[in-house]
Design a protein around this nucleic acid. Sequence first.
DNA 1: GTCTATAGCAGGATAGAC
DNA 2: GTCTATCCTGCTATAGAC
Lengths: 217, 217
Amino acid sequence: MVQKDKNEFPRERILDEAELLFARKGYHAVTVREITTRAGCNLAAVNYHFGNKENLYLEVFKTRWFPRARRIMNAVDKALESRERISISAVIHAVASAFLEGPLTERERELHFQLMVRELAQPTEAFEIVAGQIMQPFFQKLGAIISPFLPGKMDEEQLMLSMFSVFSMILHLNFARVAVTRLTGREYDAAFRARLVGHIVEFSLNGLGGIYREESE
Amino acid sequence: MVQKDKNEFPRERILDEAELLFARKGYHAVTVREITTRAGCNLAAVNYHFGNKENLYLEVFKTRWFPRARRIMNAVDKALESRERISISAVIHAVASAFLEGPLTERERELHFQLMVRELAQPTEAFEIVAGQIMQPFFQKLGAIISPFLPGKMDEEQLMLSMFSVFSMILHLNFARVAVTRLTGREYDAAFRARLVGHIVEFSLNGLGGIYREESE
DNA sequence: GTCTATAGCAGGATAGAC
DNA sequence: GTCTATCCTGCTATAGAC
């Protein structure tokens, strides 16, 4: 049996380590030496495979972050497809659950949101992928699904702000764990994540206009 | 007339420039050379006044970030004192407005939240100030004010999560401006900020349990 | 494709004159 | 307190052997 624990391709190992380190410490705090050492290959490998450090960072988004974002979006789709009737409640639950409990492992989730927050706070070239290819289509699609259920008076901007609100909770509860743990005294285990999903759904459902609560299920 | 445009004390000028740069680019992306050059003083000044770069970063939180956080908290207090009867609506409005329109200038607000998000995403020693001296007392105080208005069934953890929800919106709408601007197409002028405050109040009020909406005013 | 070796430079920090 | 000059570490990137 050949060792399969670590990827056999140095290029892939570099991408894995780079993502981990960029997420945890930020672009400038990470050195190419650190990445290549942890990836078990030579310093020059980064330049050979990616040209330079900046390009490696971009490649992390293209080959790691982006596919994972797609996995989350697919999880939302799948959760909604399996239902006959769609309700706002179901949509919010599907979204919150996909992000907080969904297809990613805990480790992946942490990486994913850390990278995302870094780009939101201080956009680089990678922001184009995050915003243009993921966020915009995602919000657009979600808006189209839930707008028929909402009061006619809710205009497009209001809908967008509401989706931001929901998304901000999801984001916050994922990336500000240190604060959440400190102030609630709870660890991020499965039970707590389920609790968070429940809270987000309830809070958002009311926030979107409590009247629509009992529409289905 | 003596020139008062720039602070006469190099120590203060260093703190000002350091804050601006740390907020915009992050600790590791900023060099001591850049700070001292922009502060119009010598490279050695940072080591003389603060010992080293890390200590300067900490001092930025102690002498700049912390007082500003207090100004926001005072603004909340003041807004609530001026009312005879306190309602949940009034509390949420006071908080949202203090953070989004309050005593800070636009420039200060941007710095403030960028620094805060950096610490939330990746805590350093400064997190002790942010969490221990500001967030914890703030949430505790707010909780004490609004809990009497809430349904008895809402336990302490639920209350904490609700406050997180409100806070996450405020935080998100302040730090993820690039995304908000991109997806709504609106600039952060006074009108839009007022709109955001209105949205947060409405969304949160419902989120906390729509029934309590008309309690006062 | 992967390595060693090293160029070339920018970073934080300090010593010591003024 | 503020400056100049400098040390030295650690960085990215490349050249060239294998």
